[in-house]
Amino acid sequence: MMVQKDLILDQQPLIKADQLTRLYGINKGCEQIDLELYAGEVLGIVGESGSGKSTLLRCLAGIESIDSGTVDYESTIGQLRLHDLAESERRRLIRQEWGFIQQNPRDGLHLEMSAGANISERLMSQGERHYGRIRQQALDWMQRVELDPARIDDKPKNFSGGMQQRLQIARNLVSGPSILFMDEPTGGLDVSVQARVLDLIRKLVRELNVAVVLVTHDIGVARILADRLIVMRNSRIIETGLTDQILEDPQAPYTQLLVSSILRV
């Protein structure tokens, strides 16, 4: 059962994409995308593989260049046109104001550094220089993501997939990002582990009121986490709306197909 959130829709969107296009083949990528992301909401991008959702996510996060269109970000210092920024500015945004959870946690973690080091990195790159305080925050975060704090000095290469994903979440949230981008966050995990990680994500997102852009091919995941959905197919958006509306009353034929294929739990 979705908990309804009060979405304040008359505020400025955090991210506004206007005719965003990035293609690397016919129908491969994303084209003419218009979307908005508001503070505190979870926006799900769903579709089958090859629909372009990961490409769209990467373009919104500024880690992939675009062919045309714009992405505007409402930062604390004013509106920024994402792809007009200098490389260093973009990298700073992703490192400090945003977070990116990779589908494979091995891509989003320093496997050869301890769990504590992984969580601490953002704090230190923001200028935190007190070892004791850094370590305490790392310990706190390990608890928050339900990892055993006694393992703070262990290396994630020895962790299970679920534990690695929890560590990745901690590592990104420790800097208090305004937006969290997630690419199939539970994709590689087995079913029982998935459920627990999803619960964790949902809890943290509520507590921190962070905006989320979540890519998933699994409508069940979208149902649990997302407030609004964008349905993609062949590089285009074919339907958007509140999650409840889309799942209960899909308009486009493709969306109907997608929704009808969910296993009712």
Binding site: R91, R95, H110, M113, S114, G116, A117, S120, E121, R122, M124, S125, Y131, I134
Partner: peptide, 11 residues
């Protein structure tokens, strides 16, 4: 981007 240097000291 000197984060890795401080990581080493932390470790």
């Amino acid at each position: 981007e000197y984060g890795v240097m401080h990581l080493k000291l932390y470790e």
